[in-house]
Design a protein around this nucleic acid. Structure first.
Lengths: 233, 233
DNA sequence: CGAGCCCTTGATGCATTTCAACGAATGTGG
DNA sequence: CCACATTCGTTGAAATGCATCAAGGGCTCG
């Protein structure tokens, strides 16, 4: 169980988690050495689960590459998608003994898998790292609050516009062309609408000349200002 | 700026925050002594704000009595209600420099007001307390996730049924009779629906014999099983 | 008693879901 | 390499849910 912390992809992901200048701070190299002892690089194939709702929450994960979907289902089979995660995002930070949702790989995914108990003990000895970690939790809280706001306030098409803007930002990193890793049904279950409404939303934005769609998944934002206006930001 | 930590109401609230056996743990009396130095009991009149969105987030609050509503407004005047808080709930745990929402007193409220910087320094010296505090953050996360799940749920009336069950649990504490501290508009802005739909939802549940309503605010759950069935849990 | 506030109820139109059919892309076996 | 099945997305039509507009009722307080 060792982790190559000199690998660029891993560096990038850890930096986005614990702070950009992680490798510059005094004593952090020690932390990284310890981390590499309790961490492990794992690949997960498209469609399979990193962990499932109800599994003992023994590990914390950091996404290195690929796209992950957090979902939960009711006993009656109704599904809800909580989030889409990408490089640098953290999974499984529950304080509870079991995960309260499942994490599904939308494509081939690599993650860093860290033993929660060991990482906890590391945190006890590196309070600066622990603080950064907990700051991350409140950032997540902040993000979810925004998401809740969107869920409550917007019409279905506006919510979709907001998702596209979010994806353009998180996947496209500023460029206006990106590849959606999830299907229409996933988006529908994320935004709380039907599959058909999602599809109509895409079609509508395309007809308006605001976005372009190739092959269902390849999206280009043609008029970013109009999209923002439409999303009512 | 001193706090009477022997007062029963304060004991109860702190216990619900930091753990039930707070007063029994070794060294925690010391923590409480320090806390009492940086904390203050404050009363807030009905309708006024404990803090507002954009205020510098210098304080953390714990609700002692009364009901609090967390809300946010867009530039265009659209309001969203994030949460209703009661005895023992924590407010203002943002890691950001300003609050990202406002906290309004729904009735006369008393809170413990704690200086964030001082409490932070206390946490540095009492890691056990700090850990409990951060655990609380993830509990909030958990709660909000549930809320998001409900927001994605099918019908408006189902969401309302969820809220009633939640209130029965949190205000009524198991009994089936409780007093709603918020108005129909607040509920509407919380569940992402119109005032009228909220009202119709209440009327519908009343006609079905599932709940009873006196004086608009006094609610009795007559058939808890039916209400759960309706909420589709 | 009247004003003001909040809640309720009704009517109407728009947004969204649901049902259903079709089309595009992908993969499989003959 | 071509039918065929399968999966996923699109589109249309009908039904339903919800918001909006509008009016009325009950409560509280001056």
């Amino acid at each position: 169980m060792t982790l190559d912390t000199s690998k660029v992809s891993i560096k990038t992901s850890l930096a986005s988690l614990f702070g950009k200048n992680l490798y510059e701070v005094d004593g952090d190299q020690l932390f990284l050495d310890e981390l590499s002892q309790c961490a492990q690089e794992v690949t997960v194939r498209e469609g399979s689960y990193i962990f499932k709702e109800g599994d003992p929450s023994d590990y914390v994960y950091v996404a290195i590459s690929g796209a992950i979907m957090l979902e939960r289902s009711t006993s009656k089979g109704v599904r809800h998608v909580f989030a889409f995660l990408f490089t640098g995002n953290l999974l499984g930070l529950s304080e509870f003994s079991v995960y309260s949702f499942s994490a599904k790989a939308l494509n081939n995914v690599t993650v860093i898998k860290m033993n929660k108990k060991i990482i906890q003990s590391i945190f006890d000895r590196y309070p600066t790292i622990a603080k950064r970690f907990h700051q991350f939790t409140t950032h997540v809280l902040h993000y979810i609050l925004d998401q809740m706001f969107i869920m409550g306030q917007k019409t279905a098409h506006q919510r979709l516009a907001h998702l596209i803007l979010d994806m353009a930002h998180r996947i496209g990193h500023g460029t206006n062309r990106f590849f959606l890793p999830m299907g229409r049904q996933d988006i529908a279950d994320y935004l709380g609408m039907s599959l058909e409404t999602t599809s109509r939303g895409f079609s509508h934005l395309k007809k308006q000349g605001i976005i372009n769609i190739e092959n269902n998944y390849k999206i280009t934002v043609l008029d970013s200002a109009a999209l923002k206006e439409f999303a009512d930001i």
